[in-house]
Lab assay of single mutants.
Amino acid sequence: MAEQVALSRTQVCGILREELFQGDAFHQSDTHIFIIMGASGDLAKKKIYPTIWWLFRDGLLPENTFIVGYARSRLTVADIRKQSEPFFKATPEEKLKLEDFFARNSYVAGQYDDAASYQRLNSHMNALHLGSQANRLFYLALPPTVYEAVTKNIHESCMSQIGWNRIIVEKPFGRDLQSSDRLSNHISSLFREDQIYRIDHYLGKEMVQNLMVLRFANRIFGPIWNRDNIACVILTFKEPFGTEGRGGYFDEFGIIRDVMQNHLLQMLCLVAMEKPASTNSDDVRDEKVKVLKCISEVQANNVVLGQYVGNPDGEGEATKGYLDDPTVPRGSTTATFAAVVLYVENERWDGVPFILRCGKALNERKAEVRLQFHDVAGDIFHQQCKRNELVIRVQPNEAVYTKMMTKKPGMFFNPEESELDLTYGNRYKNVKLPDAYERLILDVFCGSQMHFVRSDELREAWRIFTPLLHQIELEKPKPIPYIYGSRGPTEADELMKRVGFQYEGTYKWVNP
């Protein structure tokens, strides 16, 4: 592979701008107003304001973009700056750019259920340069409990009458099928589907988006991507930290609602779906819905739930269990780990287990898709061969690698495990991989909904998990304890083995 010439960040961002501006969906010269509902909250200060700053800094926003914060707290732009700027990672050389960014910011205080507050917000936006005809993007960085009041008031008082209007809704989209349907029906009564952007930030990850290209742009994968060759698929999300004093919020939802029903299920769809007619948003989402419709409700015998306990040999936070978090209700049975087996009941995947695993306070930070292939028929190497695996590593250190057998150097035919490896950090030294939120917010500006969740996708996802969630809430089974920093409950490994996964433990990928 030829040595790549190092590029400056300015040059890299210039390439990104060229890609972005050559499309006809990006209205570079139009006025846009980006409204952050819930501007005083954690999500706004840690993710949304920093993301908008990065896009502005790199010249990736339309030229005439204004940012308006809205929340109940009586704040000023200076207050917003004070709480969000520490997350910007701005350099001293960017000081003038930073001043320009905050000059485009404003803030309006108001209630979430008060019509007069929204009329005041609308008047404020109209007073901005060309504000009355601007395109408006409303980001709901809010708890779902206020979605209905907020969307109703936005629709009645704050819509642009000339430009387009788009609304970005953060997960969780309800707690179960019934609450999700209620919320979807409410929002759909106010906005068209092409105006609604239900954001799952995992769909903005580079390697998640790469799944489609790997599958449908490489001839070698087509013939082997089926039940005849693939023994099982494992989708993993692991965090090495616990709730760390923020367990009160987590306890309301648990690990299945927080990660599995959305992030992991979306990745499953991209692995299992048929080739779409095109890369058009609805063509892709149509195929994802077909996959979900082929999955039956989760069966309790295919589920393992766990909850982390303190590690007596650990240090600091590792010595504390979930129930030691003062914000967690006493005696909570909320799971911090889950392993679930699903089956896609169609011709391509009949009988292939899709194993979804996620948890907190585990032994490493990792998100990946792992396809394990069947054993080689007619073994001539005296059971020395391990199964081939194709691994798409989402985070950290984005990579695609194939675990395969090669001859060990020497005189004899002794096979050993090795890999074919594409590590993004080595291959793409001159490429700026956008943060997931950067990519998705740019998608909203461009009107691309491919990486957002459609209402029928959402409904099918909740259909699969709601009976299990209701059973857990009714019966309150005690989750299996696992030690902070471990791989999780051993019962999860036993479940995976029972459905056909072979864990060798003899080879570990190392970032080159």
Rank of each mutant, 00 (worst) to 15 (best):
E93Y: 05
G222H: 06
Q195I: 06
Y49W: 10
D200T: 04
N126Y: 09
R219C: 04
Q161K: 13
R74E: 10
G247M: 04
G110D: 08
R120G: 10
N64L: 09
D79Q: 14
I220L: 13
V108N: 11
T65R: 00
H155F: 11
G23P: 10
R81S: 06
S157K: 12
F87L: 14
E94H: 08
D42E: 03
G174I: 02
Q28R: 05
F216K: 01
G69C: 08
N165K: 07
H201W: 00
N210V: 04
F250D: 00
N105R: 01
E156L: 11
P144A: 11
D114T: 04
E170K: 01
M212E: 00
N105T: 10
R120E: 09
F102L: 09
R136G: 06
R17M: 15
T236E: 13
R9H: 11
G41C: 04
A217Y: 03
E252Q: 15
M159G: 09
I220P: 06
S8W: 04
R120D: 13
R9L: 07
L55S: 08
L130E: 10
P172Q: 03
H124P: 00
N229T: 07
H201K: 01
P50W: 03
D113G: 11
L137P: 00
P50D: 01
S132D: 15
R104N: 06
G242A: 07
A231C: 07
Y118E: 01
F221C: 04
I187L: 13
R219T: 13
T65N: 05
N226I: 04
W164V: 13
F221Y: 14
R57I: 07
N126R: 14
G174D: 11
L235R: 02
A103I: 06
Q22R: 12
F101W: 06
R175H: 14
P50H: 01
Q195G: 06
C232V: 05
E18G: 11
I199H: 02
L177A: 14
K95G: 13
H124Y: 10
T65W: 10
I67C: 10
N218R: 01
F66W: 13
I196Y: 02
Q195W: 07
I230L: 07
E63P: 14
K89R: 13
S117Q: 05
D251F: 00
Q119Y: 13
V150A: 06
D181L: 13
K45E: 05
T65Q: 03
T243P: 05
S188N: 11
Y202F: 13
L60N: 07
I199P: 03
R72S: 03
P92K: 08
I256H: 06
F66Y: 15
A134G: 11
F216R: 01
G131E: 13
G14T: 07
L235I: 11
E193L: 01
E18C: 09
Y147K: 00
S184Y: 10
D251M: 01
N229I: 06
T65M: 09
C158S: 10
E156F: 11
V233T: 04
W225D: 00
F237P: 03
G174F: 05
A217S: 15
Y249A: 00
F191S: 04
A90N: 10
Q111P: 14
A116T: 13
P143E: 01
A44R: 01
N218Y: 01
N229E: 03
I168G: 12
L96I: 07
M159K: 14
N126W: 07
N105I: 11
R246M: 03
F253Y: 08
S184P: 01
R227M: 15
V12H: 15
H124I: 15
D114V: 11
R192P: 11
S180K: 02
A44Y: 01
I52T: 05
N185R: 15
H155N: 15
A141I: 00
T243G: 13
R74S: 12
H155C: 07
S132E: 12
L55W: 05
V146D: 02
K82H: 10
R246Q: 07
G23L: 08
S160M: 07
F237S: 06
A90F: 14
P144D: 01
K152C: 06
G41F: 01
A44F: 03
I67S: 02
I80D: 02
H186M: 14
Y147T: 03
V233H: 01
S180L: 12
E170W: 00
Q161H: 10
Q83N: 07
G38D: 00
T10G: 04
D100R: 08
T76H: 09
Y112L: 04
R136D: 03
Q161L: 13
K171C: 01
H155E: 13
N165V: 08
E85R: 05
K97M: 09
R198P: 03
T10K: 15
I36P: 01
R104T: 04
L55A: 11
Y197V: 02
S106L: 07
P172C: 03
F88I: 14
S8V: 06
E99F: 09
E18H: 15
R9C: 12
L43N: 02
E206D: 03
D181Q: 14
S106C: 11
T76P: 06
T51F: 08
Q83A: 13
M159W: 11
T51W: 03
K46C: 04
G59H: 02
L7S: 15
H27P: 08
L7N: 15
G174L: 01
A231R: 07
T236V: 07
R9Y: 13
L7Q: 06
W53F: 07
L183K: 00
F191N: 03
P172F: 00
F253C: 09
N218L: 01
F56L: 02
G38L: 00
G242D: 15
Q195A: 15
D251R: 04
L16P: 14
D100I: 07
R74G: 10
K46T: 06
Q119P: 13
A71F: 04
L60W: 06
M207N: 13
H155D: 10
A231L: 11
K238E: 02
F101T: 02
P240F: 11
A134M: 11
N122S: 10
K238V: 04
A127K: 13
K47C: 03
K205L: 03
G59Y: 05
Q119W: 11
D113N: 06
R57N: 12
S123V: 13
Q178H: 11
L140I: 12
Q83P: 05
Q133K: 07
K97Y: 06
I33D: 04
F253H: 08
I35M: 10
E148K: 15
A127I: 11
I255T: 06
K89C: 13
P240A: 08
L190G: 05
K95C: 09
T243L: 07
V77N: 13
T76K: 13
F26H: 15
A217E: 02
G23C: 12
E244F: 11
G254M: 03
L121W: 02
R198I: 05
R246V: 01
K205Y: 06
R192V: 12
Y139M: 06
S188Y: 05
I167A: 13
F138M: 06
S8D: 15
